[in-house]
Design a protein around this nucleic acid. Sequence first.
DNA 1: CTGCGGCTATAACCTGACGGCATGGATGTC
DNA 2: GACATCCATGCCGTCAGGTTATAGCCGCAG
Lengths: 302, 302
Amino acid sequence: MDVDTRLLRYFVAVAEDGSLTHAAQRLFVSQPALTKQIKQLETQLGVLLFTRSRTGMALTAAGRALAERVPALLADWERTLREAKAAASRAQRVLRVGFVASGANEATPRIVADFARRRPGWRAEMRQAAWSNPSAGLADAEVDVALVRLPFPGQDAVHLVPLLTEPRWVALADAHPLASREVIPFRELWDEPFVAAPAETGDWRNHWLAADEREGRPVRVGAVTDQPDDWLSAIANGYGIALAPESASRFYARPGVTYRPVTGVSPSRVAVAWAPADDTNAVVQDFVRCCRDSLGQARGTA
Amino acid sequence: MDVDTRLLRYFVAVAEDGSLTHAAQRLFVSQPALTKQIKQLETQLGVLLFTRSRTGMALTAAGRALAERVPALLADWERTLREAKAAASRAQRVLRVGFVASGANEATPRIVADFARRRPGWRAEMRQAAWSNPSAGLADAEVDVALVRLPFPGQDAVHLVPLLTEPRWVALADAHPLASREVIPFRELWDEPFVAAPAETGDWRNHWLAADEREGRPVRVGAVTDQPDDWLSAIANGYGIALAPESASRFYARPGVTYRPVTGVSPSRVAVAWAPADDTNAVVQDFVRCCRDSLGQARGTA
DNA sequence: CTGCGGCTATAACCTGACGGCATGGATGTC
DNA sequence: GACATCCATGCCGTCAGGTTATAGCCGCAG
């Protein structure tokens, strides 16, 4: 009996929240589409999975049996997929390097060049990650090594070496009243609307909103963006302001957007990170060494 | 990343025999369809899985990584599916009973009636299996208990109680020269073409061809059939003759087909079988008891 | 060196499945 | 009795998977 993993994801979603309508929104499909898919899954398996009622969809015994095992199956598939991709990049002598925004700033090209020198035949494939992916693909093993901003969710599950520290500035629309100030104390920004990362990024989002450096003041969110481009547009259009590393003023200069130093907010740190399993991976460690040589002196891992 | 298990089966098939053309025939699809599917899998995963050449398809490193894990994944899915189906039938108080051909012959209705009496609220769902499935669905857990003919492949992996023994007769076309004989020594049938079960049934097929009761004489196969109906047609049309339990003369009487006793060939045995895991399943054991009470006296399991 | 036989890839076409929107039907709620 | 909230159904456009026929590549035999 063949199934599409998509169908299984649908099933798990409906099983989890006991409602077609709600699950449909989570899955970004229409409710009729889900109705049909679930019904199709049931006829394919020849088994009734849910008992329908006005109050929603309740699992049958068969449905429960399925719901118990399917998530593990999907996870296994994802893992298999990741392993295959990793094997492919190894075979082609490609090191997949994830990075957020401007990576290690001006040092990035030096690092890549150094790596090319140290590992002839290998190629560093640089992959920029969206805000919603603060580990730059390391968490889901899409990359072998990543240039990340600390702190980020899941940081404890990886090993890393800090590379550089830079102050956080603020990015605001040219027209903003505070744009004419040379230096801005963070407390003056507490009540401004901010352009934030997607809600699902949790502590990462909070870090860039400096949520715990507001002495309890609530955050106002004026817009949510997931990419540098959208982020710049939102700021230029006046939907809100945002904290950004000082280097953003060089890497993300744009008409309509002004960067200003901010006092009273902690700096941003850049690190190179890798999966613990790659502690013994010579290529990954070579890349880390390139990072260290080009930038950092710290040597501890955490 | 979503995949259809069908795609994974395709991939495994190609990986196994290193040829699109050959794999396509095994999978009963055209070679271009397979070409496209494999190519699609590769683009979906963003990974090259095979290196093409005139000599066939060879796995890349990534392909090997995938090929190592996918079979286990598919097996997991099948198992999950079986468990869900089993849960469904338990929940509905349905005992799934597989049987081959006429099952336990005239005793079958008695067994079912006895079971209905002993387990009110339960229903025995009788499922006839094709020749190609001599365990009647027990081997792949499609049924909870089965009325089978001994011996059959995989017999050692189940527990069973013998129920009855009956002589094997021969079924032949009315027009066959031997059809007028009252009793036929098996040796006279050695050179006749036989109607056989599909090749993949191995020892089961050989048992019904009495391959090891021919003193080394080779078997001539005149036709291959997978169902009682086809089997009867093949015999009536003179494609060959076939051994059959004596009871077939009652359950599978048909114009054009004559049944005659045969000497010099071992008898056929009927047993009830179940999965070892169901040794403690009260419902299954009740059914077994119904079988024993209606028929057998033997009590050992093997 | 030409033609044949093994591969895989491509082209053109058909069907059916999936998704979307609009709507229906059942059932509590105010 | 009108409404809100579920899930189910009907209709339609799009695309993916299948088919057959054919092309391209290469090694081998005559």
